[in-house]
Amino acid sequence: MDIGKLNKLGKTINEIEEGQTMSVTEAIEDDQILLYLGLTNDANPLYVQHDYAQKTVYEQPIVPSVLLMGIVTSTVSKHFPGPGSHIVNLSVNFVEAVYHYEMLTFLFEVIKVDKHKEDMTLSVEAVNTEGKRVLDAVVIVQPPMVYKEESEDNHE
């Protein structure tokens, strides 16, 4: 990312319609978990210690919930609606535990566009490769807002 360069903006409120969808597939790897643990100083043995996890109902280490939230929020920032977006509300339900190395598919759907408030509501569902739902979320996002004179120069 070039800090001095103007980056392309994501979709503005006028480019978003109810019913639009996007999906993202992510594999949960050890390096992501270790980075999270290092950044947050979270020492929960349930996330990395096999001997400890075997004594729990999970039987093996699980993925920290915040990593799943990170996939949701980074997808909003990077892709849908994209750069310049701002999450103003996030409600997440973790339905099932997620284990290391699982492949998850996140489906995003625009369920409401409020042009008066200049925000949109996304429904998010994540499923694992077995088709089990592991996460439900509702995300309220302010898409990128631009000044009229800049919108023609910086947005395509």
Score class of each variant (00 low, 15 high):
M1H: 03
N7D: 06
G10M: 12
K11R: 12
T12G: 09
I13D: 03
E18D: 09
E26L: 01
A27E: 13
I28F: 09
D31I: 08
I33Y: 01
L35F: 02
L37M: 09
T40N: 06
D42F: 01
P45N: 04
V48N: 01
A53S: 11
A53C: 08
A53R: 01
T56S: 07
V57S: 11
E59D: 06
V63F: 01
V63E: 02
P64L: 00
S65H: 06
V66L: 12
I71A: 03
T73L: 09
S74Q: 14
V76Q: 09
V76A: 10
K78Y: 05
H79W: 12
I87W: 15
N89F: 09
L90M: 08
V98Y: 02
Y101S: 04
M103G: 01
L104S: 04
F108H: 08
I111K: 15
I111P: 06
V113C: 06
D114F: 02
K115L: 05
H116F: 01
K117W: 02
E118T: 07
T121E: 15
T121F: 08
S123I: 10
T129H: 13
G131R: 07
R133K: 14
A137N: 05
V141A: 09
Q142L: 11
Y147A: 15
E152G: 08
H155C: 11
